[in-house]
Amino acid sequence: MADPAATADVQDFVKFCVPLTGFTAFDLYATDMAGAYLDTARRQVGPERFDTFWTAWKQAVTGGGGPQDLAPTHREVARALVYLWYTGAWPRLAPAAHADLRREQANTEFVVAPEAYVEGLVWRTFHGHPSGAKPPGFGTWGVRPPAPPEVEELRAGLGVRDVAYRTGLDAEVSPEDIPAHLLPGFRSGRHVPPSEVPVATVPGTIEEGRV
């Protein structure tokens, strides 16, 4: 008897990662990483604690809610899961969440596998491709990229509810006016992992670069 193309666990995982990531089930399966990510999350969070989180998240979604319905530690796990899908790496968690989960692993960022990096979804948010993989061909970098799809269009394409996919923010972030604290700032050095980079400072708030 052959293994199914996707186990019931993986199907369930993908289904409820759709509203979390903003990518369709097709796109999530297309990475070929769903099983590996579920394993990684279970190992990093601990199987029982992951189950508790997962149940909470499913309840939130089926109850017509979103990330704002998650307790802080679960919110951090949800973020880690999205980071995993978007970059192929497990991030450093907020120390409070790390302690709350009683994790036995070091709280540092790591790349799950070479193939995981290649399947990061972040590149697709801006019409790109992972640096060092899936090259699009000679001269394609001269083409003007299309505008990113709007949230309503994405919601419709995903078939997800019209709920807030944000926490701690009153309204959708306007692309015209992105708060600096949602952007990365200067790294003190190349050794700083992406998930530990400080947030940006508001332009013009420091006297820098002026004579």
């Binding site: 697709r124 019409h127 699009p136 061909g137 001269g139 394609t140 001269g142 083409v143 003007r144 990229p145 299309p146 990113p148 799809p149």
Partner: peptide, 13 residues
Amino acid sequence: DLSALTPATGETF
């Protein structure tokens, strides 16, 4: 020089 082209959708190069 491909610079005059515009992508039809987000999925095409």
